[in-house]
């Protein structure tokens, strides 16, 4: 089990990395209110790859098992995450932007998330371990980051009627007059 001290070190490293990430990253000016993947890219250019990497882990057991359905479900969920973020107020978009900037900064990804490969090649087990560490972290900030990813990804999938047959939800009733 990881000790509290390790988390503290990770937190300090994360803070420093975050500063560097903001300094280094090459991103368009922060413009809230884009749509879909554009909105994700507007937050941070790494955001689409990060979301696409965490979607299959958060939704393990829920997504279709085989391609091409699986691939398109991941793509739609990533798109819907972007759409949902575009509707959030500027303060929330900015915080998510900071989170994606941090995770998108290579040294922070390795040191803090402990995901070795770039996000678009990341190993599912490493991504799962990263999410689990943040979920149970002693740091409120990391737990809140996990919570944000949890909420936005699960909402993006279960708001999609494609997810409903597997959970036995028939959809809204037909009330046409």
């Amino acid at each position: 089990m990881t000790s509290r001290r390790t988390f503290l070190a990770a937190g300090v490293a994360g803070g420093i990395a975050l500063g560097f990430a903001w300094w280094w990253r090459d991103r368009p000016a922060f413009v809230p209110g884009g749509a879909g993947v554009d909105a994700l890219t507007a937050l941070d250019r790494s955001a689409p790859a990060i979301v696409a990497a965490i979607v299959p882990v958060l939704l393990a057991g829920a997504l279709p098992a085989a391609d091409p359905e699986r691939r398109s479900a991941i793509d739609e969920t990533t798109l819907n995450v972007g759409r949902a973020i575009a509707g959030l107020p500027p303060a929330a978009q900015q915080e998510l932007g900071e989170l994606f900037a941090l995770l998108g900064f290579g040294p922070a990804r390795i040191a803090l998330a402990r995901v070795v490969a770039p996000w678009n090649e990341a190993d599912d087990d490493e991504v799962a371990a990263f999410l689990e560490r943040w979920r149970v972290s002693g740091f409120l900030l990391l737990r809140s980051a996990y919570d944000a990813l949890h909420q936005i990804v699960l909402a993006a999938w279960y708001g999609n009627p494609r997810s409903w047959p597997a959970i036995g939800y028939p959809g809204p009733p037909n009330i046409s007059p």
């Binding site: 882990v57 999410l131 979920r135 909420q151 999938w157 409903w164 959970i167």
Partner: peptide, 15 residues
């Protein structure tokens, strides 16, 4: 579905 999914804790196969 959304309210249920975001309220149930954890993720992956257990969720």
């Amino acid at each position: 579905p959304i309210l249920g999914a975001i309220t149930l804790p954890n993720h992956g196969s257990g969720h």
